[in-house]
């Protein structure tokens, strides 16, 4: 899995399918957002799309 260096979303692609930024395989921490509208965590991080995210990417 790779993480987008900008939005931190996890994907298996070379470029993030959401924002098009390059992805990196060096990431840590996992965050699964299932309901972004009702999640305080998603609100805090400004996430509006459900999916898998990392907490830190390098």
């Amino acid at each position: 899995m790779n993480a987008c260096t900008s939005c931190k979303m996890l994907s298996s692609k070379e470029r993030c399918p959401v924002c098009g930024n390059p992805t990196s395989s060096n990431w840590s921490g996992l965050l699964v957002i299932t309901n972004p509208d009702e999640s305080a965590v998603a609100k805090e991080l400004g996430i509006s799309l459900a999916g898998e995210y990392c907490l830190r990417v390098r």
Binding site: G29, L30, V32, I33, T34, N35, A40, V41, A42, L55
Partner: peptide, 10 residues
């Protein structure tokens, strides 16, 4: 189940 998010800190 009303799970909104799951956090796995390293």
């Amino acid at each position: 189940v009303g799970i909104c998010s799951i956090l796995v800190p390293e």
